[in-house]
């Protein structure tokens, strides 16, 4: 079993134009920075990207938008990105807005081998247009399909060479369920370790879901909204 690849370029080398890819992260938190940079370098285009957000103008998926590599975004929130807005209004980019919990659970369903879910989110709104509605115990639910992605690209805190992953703090977000949902799952990690170094009791993503893993580098971890309070006076 050898899941370890040298770097992001090798990890994504068979992602071709037109692919459907999932990218983990919430805002700029927990995004696979190395693989995004590699996809920009590879110049693949016509991509369908499933990701909660679309980055900002000069970071995250925003870098791929700048190079016009994205045909369609499937997201819950796409603010904070002027180039995104320009491409959307000009018709170059297609967007499908999905309620955030629905997005997460459609990923989860794929990883759990379930074809669809029923959720109340969006009942009675335009999100329900064209979707099957089922009533359970007096409440309406929309049927939403599991995602079908060629590749899932996730970012973890630590991983071992067998593909077991651990995430840190709110950088976990969409990464675990996307890791489970890809036909091919690529994980970039801040720290790649040998089997046995991670406590099996604290693995978030079992290695069976991960096909390729590599030690990431040069993480910028940009902060979107830096909010602080004044430090207490030192005695």
């Amino acid at each position: 079993m050898n899941k370890v690849v040298a770097n992001a370029d090798e990890a994504i080398k068979d992602i071709e134009s037109g692919a459907v890819i999932m990218l983990g992260g919430f805002g700029l938190c927990g995004i696979p920075e190395n693989c995004i940079t590699a996809l920009v370098r590879k110049k693949v285009d016509n991509l369908t990207c499933i990701s909660n957000n679309a980055g900002v103008d000069d970071f995250g998926i925003g870098l791929m938008l700048q190079q016009k590599q994205v045909k369609k975004m499937i997201s819950s929130y796409v603010g904070e990105n002027a180039e995104f807005e320009r491409q959307l209004l000009s018709g170059e980019l297609e967007v499908e807005l999905v309620p955030q919990g629905t997005l997460a659970t459609r990923c989860m369903a794929a990883g759990y081998g379930m074809p669809a879910i029923f959720t109340p989110a969006g009942v009675g709104t335009e999100v329900a247009n064209g979707k099957e509605v089922r009533n359970f115990n007096g409440k309406d639910y929309l049927m939403e399909y599991a995602f079908d992605a060629d590749f899932a690209i996730v970012k973890a805190w630590k991983g071992d060479t067998m593909g077991n992953l651990m995430y840190k703090d709110t950088a976990r977000n969409f990464n675990p369920m996307m890791a489970m949902a890809g036909k091919i799952t690529i994980a970039e990690v801040e720290e790649l370790v040998q089997p046995g170094e991670l406590d099996p009791n604290f693995i978030h993503t079992p290695g069976i879901y991960v096909h390729r893993i590599f030690q990431g580098k040069d993480y910028e971890k940009r902060i979107e909204q830096r909010t602080t309070r004044k430090s207490p006076p030192t005695p």
Binding site: S76, Y77, L88, L97, P99, Q100, A121, V127
Partner: peptide, 10 residues
């Protein structure tokens, strides 16, 4: 410009 519903609908 529509930014999205985020988690509000859920």
């Amino acid at each position: 410009m529509v930014k999205g519903m985020g988690g509000a609908m859920d």
